[in-house]
Amino acid sequence: MEFIQNSVLPHFNYWVYVILMMIGLYAMITKKNLVKKLIGMTIFQTAIILFYVSIGVKTGSTIPILEHHAEEHGEAVTDTGGHHEEAPGEHESHDSIHAVDPDHFANPLPHVLMLTAIVVGVSTLGVALAISQSIYKDFGTLEEHEILEKIKQGGPGIDV
């Protein structure tokens, strides 16, 4: 109980990502079917995305989009995020007119990295499915051991 209180709960995002990632890794290692391997790869990828997004979370912060009013100019940004009562002293914005407190907005960098990673993940999954489709066309199966068997017999699609 104490272990859960002290070690698991403050770090539960890491536990979730490790468990998901291991499910994906297990599928990639042991499953014989190529499509099941791809499903494992996607679960693995999702775990990484979850990991990145979860390290960007700040308690009491909002999405990294500033509120702005187009009519005014100059210091048009208003800082509305978060529920922090006391302003952190170490953050001095001496040269900027409008003070945007970084603690009020979630870390934008993991969001950016994962945004592109998701779309690239989808397109690489598309390529992987295309390759498995052409393997199926040549061998008539997606089971790994059956494909290896056919390669040993000098099956179709082998021109070496």
Binding site: G56, P64, I65, L66, E67, H68, A76, V77, S93, S96, H98, V100, P102, F105, N107, P108, L109, H111, V112, L115
Partner: peptide, 18 residues
């Protein structure tokens, strides 16, 4: 990331930091 949050609007006038 702190630089992005504080300076994006002065640098680019884009409210969506991402």
């Amino acid at each position: 990331s702190q630089y992005y949050i504080t300076e994006t609007y002065t640098d680019t006038k884009v409210p969506n930091i991402v």
